[in-house]
Design a protein around this nucleic acid. Sequence first.
DNA 1: GTTTCAAGGTACTTGGCGTACCTTATATCT
DNA 2: AGATATAAGGTACGCCAAGTACCTTGAAAC
Lengths: 215, 215
Amino acid sequence: MTPAEGVRPAAAGRRRGTELEEAILTAAAAVLTEDGVAGLTMEKVARRAGTNKNTLYRRWPNRLALAVAAYRRLAADRTAPPDTGSLRGDALALLRRADSSWASPMGEILRGLLAAAGGAPELLAELRPDADGNAVDAAWLTLIGRAVARGEARPEALHPRVASAPTALLRNEYVTRGVPAVPDAVLVEIVDEVFLPLVRGRGPMAGRTLPEGPA
Amino acid sequence: MTPAEGVRPAAAGRRRGTELEEAILTAAAAVLTEDGVAGLTMEKVARRAGTNKNTLYRRWPNRLALAVAAYRRLAADRTAPPDTGSLRGDALALLRRADSSWASPMGEILRGLLAAAGGAPELLAELRPDADGNAVDAAWLTLIGRAVARGEARPEALHPRVASAPTALLRNEYVTRGVPAVPDAVLVEIVDEVFLPLVRGRGPMAGRTLPEGPA
DNA sequence: GTTTCAAGGTACTTGGCGTACCTTATATCT
DNA sequence: AGATATAAGGTACGCCAAGTACCTTGAAAC
């Protein structure tokens, strides 16, 4: 909690350009994880990076832009979609992953950021490519694709809008309830009452495939 | 834009209790519609109501609580769900209504409020009962119920989670894109690719009922 | 009429964004 | 190498709005 000044090498000359920018982003990311979006102040970041507000404002137009940039450096990767062999298993696994991701500290930051962005398209655009949006929907698509190949899903279900449904319902739960984490029953319900009926039609194989326990 | 002082009857004695509270809420609602959530300051509301910050803080613990209260007085009513005779028609109508509601100034305020609340359950709880959440989902439920009665939908679709789907997808669009209004094609897509396949199974009547133009 | 309580008034503290302006180190150009 | 441009460092503001403190004053209750 002490100002943690010692980030600057002290007697190592004046940093410039990329090097400095990196240092700032690292500092900002640290502040972000420690104090959340609301607690990220320019002063704090500047001190922590061993520089001053001026320098920050030369690179980012405002507090939020810096926060978003810092977040992006935090949330880089995304892993491959699960493959349990069954559609329901995959869906549940993916949705649970999404939930724990949203419930995690990182997710909290993301939610805070989304809130603070308050629907500013240019900021949202920067937030989308990673932990959220595209990548996630892509995972759902491959999952559905596999199910179609297995004959477990109707081909028309291989559609971006369909793929976005589970995530949207989950997010909806967060937004309207404001809970820190969604109970597992909700996830199961989303899968069983919405996702599965949606991707399987009521075709030849009808409602059920293999009897699988809910967890 | 002038301070609009003249709200207090000037020579009408000191207002108290409910009367004063009403005046404050009215003022706050006005500020809210004019300047949005971010532009609502305690000072402004106080001046406009012809009183002072002190009095506000005696009733609401902070800025946001007042904003929420003011919003609630703005968003009272909700009308009956549409009845076009066909499931698709109803769904489209309801979704379009939801969209224009979200795109309207009121919707913008609500979105700002949701953003500012940043997932604080107690505030969200106060936001839910009206323009958003319950009421809307109820409308979807009656709509689905009617379709079930007509044999247009599978009975299992009469489920709250299903009812929340279209709204969730729409909200998702707002959140991830941050647009002021969603193009109609998106609404149609939500209905045709998600909602209809979800509520109709692929039962006896399969994919289509009546050929209706998309708009 | 006196007491009590809420409203009015005013000023202040705090915190943080964003800006201005100058000084100083480093990189680049000649 | 020296001169010059550029970007970093430092410091101090202006501004605004949240929330608080404290006192005064009107009105209601007793």
